[in-house]
Structures are given as C-alpha cells and as structure tokens.
C-alpha cells in the first residue's frame, strides 16, 4: 500500500507526487494535512484513493512539530509500507524526523520512483544512484518538477479524519516574506534562466573593469525577457570579499554546488567558466546556450547546445536593442 502525503490546498508539486504514486500499481491512500481537507480531497477525488486527513488550524501552517505529528499519524493509520510526498521545504523538514519516530527509512530528492527503487543524486548532484530498500515504512520525497502532475477529474471524496491532538510547540509561524523585487531571487516560473558568471566582473578586452555597465546590461536583459536571474558561486562569493560585484546578487541567486539546481526550460549562461553553472547548476535545464569568450572552454562544450564565442557585453547591448521597449525596464 502506498500513502501520498499532501498539504492542502494541493500544490503542483503535490499533484506530481500523486501522479507518480498512481503509476506504481498499488493501492493508494492520500493523507491530507491542512486547515480543511474536504475541498482538496474533492479536487483529486478521481484518483480513486482512500482519503485520510489531519485537519485543523494548527496544521494549516508549515511547522515541524505539527507537521511531524500529522504525518506520523497518517503513516501509522494507513499502515502503508511506502509513503510519497513532494520534496518541498515543508515535507523535507518534517518527514525525516517522522522516519526516525516510526523506525522507517527515508530518501529525498527522488527524480524517479519505480516499484521497489528510487533514483536520486549524490555528491552535490554529480552522481546518479538507483537504490532499493527493505526497511519499512519507506518515505520518499519526490523532487518537484521531475514529472507530470496528476490530471484526473475532481470527484466527491470520502475523507476519514484522524483525531490528532496538536503537539505542544514553542514555534509560532509569523508569515512568509517574499522578496520585493522580482529579480531578487531565482524564480522557478520563468521560462528562461539567465546565469551571470564571474567573467562579468573581470577585466575586459580594453583592460577596464566595467561592473556598473555589466549590472545595467544584465538587469535590462532579464527585465525585458522576463528571465529569472541566477549566478555562479564564484561571483556571489566575491560580495563577501568586498570586491566590485554586481550589487543585486545574493546567495539566493546561486546555482550549483551550494545553491539550487533550477529546472527552467531554457538556460543561457554568460561569462561562466567552470563546473558549477555548466555541470551542476543547469543539469535539469532542458535547452542550454552559453556566451563565452573562450571557444575551448571545456565546461560549456558537451554541456550546452550552442556556445556563442563572443563578448557578452556586446551581445547583451545588441540584445537590448533587439528587444526594444526601453520603457519596459
């Protein structure tokens, strides 16, 4: 039996986990956690699962103590040998502790789940592994964006509510802070990820460092194309060293080793030299192009579909012209 743990309302990542679970060919239980479960259950009623829920105000927020209590109750009540949940912040925080409590095993960042096995990455996303476990319950957190969402029809669902006494907690969730400007972070919803590398802040052909022009060109480009902005670790790190850097970059922009591995459909790397952006950072980006001065850059070769050997300053200047609408900045 498989249990799918989802929060309400059900997110796209949740629907992806559900879709994945329905393909495993086992009886399905959906466990819902949130303020109220009925509506969410109805929205996926067509999946044919049994519905369990832990609902109420304490479970309406993402918090370890309450989430862990809810998930533990769902796993115990369902008797499932396999529990699947989306690998979102909420479940990644809560479910490892639950695995400990129920004496189970846990795997995270799964990109593929087959009956009896899981595929995921190790060593900062450099090694692919398929593994199988005998321990139960086995909790698997599935990486958002690595499969299709469930697309069945809504249907009236019967929800069995579990009576879980909210655990004592000293944590109160105050709210969510979204960064004010759209370019303050990597936005997964953008069609294009534009990765700025350390080359932007290096000495250019004329011997000058032109950081302010680089800032202007990059911001102009991402604003006009609606692209999400990412950066390499080396460029972000420089901000800690007091060097001339692009002022709007923070660790939240970082792709690669100790950053994120975005899943945009298209990726354009500029002035990146090295493994982070090319090997790790855009592993899950489908279509990849790069602008680099070095035609022999071993890092773009074999990793990008197209490598433009050109000066990124010039290309972005020209791109700004091609994109037009200066008022759109």
């Amino acid at each position: 039996m498989i249990l799918v743990i989802l929060e309400t309302p059900i997110s796209k990542a949740g629907l992806e986990s559900l879709c994945c679970a329905t393909k495993l060919g086992d009886t399905l239980t959906v466990g819902l956690v949130g303020a109220a479960a009925q509506e969410a259950a109805n929205s996926i009623g067509g999946c044919g699962a049994r519905f369990l829920a832990v609902e109420g105000e304490p479970y309406s927020v993402s918090r370890y103590a309450t989430d862990a209590a809810a998930a533990e109750a769902l796993i115990r009540a369902s008797g499932a040998a396999l529990a699947i949940a989306p690998c979102t912040h909420r479940w990644q925080r809560a479910l490892p502790g639950v695995a400990q409590r129920v004496g189970g095993a846990i795997d995270t960042h799964a990109v593929d789940i087959s009956p009896g096995s899981v595929r995921r990455w190790y060593y900062r996303q450099r090694i692919e592994v398929t593994l199988a476990r005998a321990a139960t319950p086995w909790i698997i957190l599935r990486e958002p964006g690595s499969g299709d969402p469930w697309q069945g029809v809504p249907a009236q669902a019967t929800v069995e509510r579990l009576d879980v006494t909210p655990p004592a907690t000293r944590t109160q969730v105050e709210g969510i802070e979204a960064q004010a400007a759209s370019q303050q972070t990597i936005r997964p919803d953008a069609a294009l990820l534009f990765v700025a590398g350390a080359g932007w802040t290096k000495k250019q052909k004329d011997g000058a460092v032109r950081t302010s022009e680089a800032s202007e060109l990059i911001l102009q480009f991402v604003n006009r194309t609606g692209a999400s902005l990412g950066s390499s670790k080396s460029l972000v790190d420089q901000s800690g060293e007091g060097q001339a850097v692009l002022p709007f970059l923070t660790h939240l922009h970082q792709v690669g080793q100790t950053g994120s591995t975005p899943r945009h459909r298209k990726g354009l790397a500029s002035c990146c030299h090295g493994e982070e952006p090319h090997v790790v950072g855009w592993r899950f980006v489908n279509e990849r192009r790069a602008i680099n001065l070095d035609p022999n850059c071993g890092w773009a070769r074999g990793k990008a579909d197209v490598l433009y050997v050109a000066d990124a300053f010039e290309v972005l200047r020209e791109a700004a012209k091609a994109l037009g609408q200066p008022g759109a900045d």
Partner: peptide, 16 residues
Amino acid sequence: WERLEGGRQQVSLCSG
C-alpha cells in the same frame, strides 16, 4: 528565517 521554494522565506518565532 527559513528558505522556501522560489526564494521566499518563512519567518517563525521560537519562544525557547
């Protein structure tokens, strides 16, 4: 401040 998906952050207060 915890880092969430999409660069958002959840702010929580832990009393002890």
